[in-house]
Amino acid sequence: MRLQRVGTAGPAKRRRYGSSKGEALAFYGFLSPWIIGTAALTLFPVGYALYLSFTAWDGVSVFKPWVGLANYREVLTSSDTLSSLSKTLLLVAIIVPTTIVGSLVLAVLLNERVRGRTFFRTLIYIPAIVPPVASALIWKVVFDQNSGAANRVGAMFGVDAVNWLTGNRAFVVLVVVLLWGVGAGIIINLAALQTVPMEQLEAVKLDGGNALTAFRHVTLPVISPVLLFQTVLVTITTLQTFVPALLLSPISTGGGDVYTNIPNANRVYMVDVYSQFFAYSRYGYGSAMLTVFFLVIVVLTVLIFKLVGRSVFYAVDPTASGKG
């Protein structure tokens, strides 16, 4: 029985491993759902949006008037768009460093043998899995002018009740909503901390270094690729902030132009994009805004790699570097 099998294995092995044509066919077979899906649902839409960005389409007409670079000129000069872009960048400048440092510190603390740390990890991580709709509504309730806890805490210190959801204060609430998810990175950070070689930490201590030296010279280099990956991810997600800004607005009835209810301080880039598309039916201009948005992401990602990437330390684990 066994011998027979081995006997047939020779040609079978050559057929499957030797023929690179068959392997290539298998490769494209396995990848086909993704290749077809990406072509139809990512590449085509991106190309179509790029085409629309050179038109003044209203979203309904059959005719899509070609306007060349006019939309782009407007994106780069419109004070509304530049203001929404700068608000978004401010949000990124606040959220990204706080989230990255915050989740790193929390992960380092959770990595210590502290009683109940699994319980703490769960509690700190849960806000990160709460969907944006729910976190916006939760904080809307907390910051409600009349019944919210925020004003009740204020009253304890003799501060008069204020309306948190209008004016510039709305931006503070938006920041709070996004910072609530600070725990999002702790699981991947904790996993990364497990890969830090204990022997090297011990070696630093033997050389008379303290915990901070060990962290700086051993831990940080080892986990830096994970931190870089997270920085890019958090930057992209923060740039896309939309749902919290929409649902924090004082009244969102779902009907009419809901975007005008959003206080000016929270009119971030995506709010601007949505109102261009769905309140003003400016599909061409909205598409140009999306193209510019994508370029902003590319530029920021390259910047992060240039600024942070330089200090990222690869190939600590020989088994990891071998597989690339």
Partner: peptide
């Protein structure tokens, strides 16, 4: 297979394309 690295590069790039950019088209 030939073209694998190119496709992997495409995979990584699509991770950077926000939902919003593709959703409306």
């Amino acid at each position: 297979a030939p073209g694998k690295n190119l496709l992997f590069g495409l995979l990584i790039s699509t991770m950077m394309v926000p939902q919003i950019v593709t959703l409306i088209p």
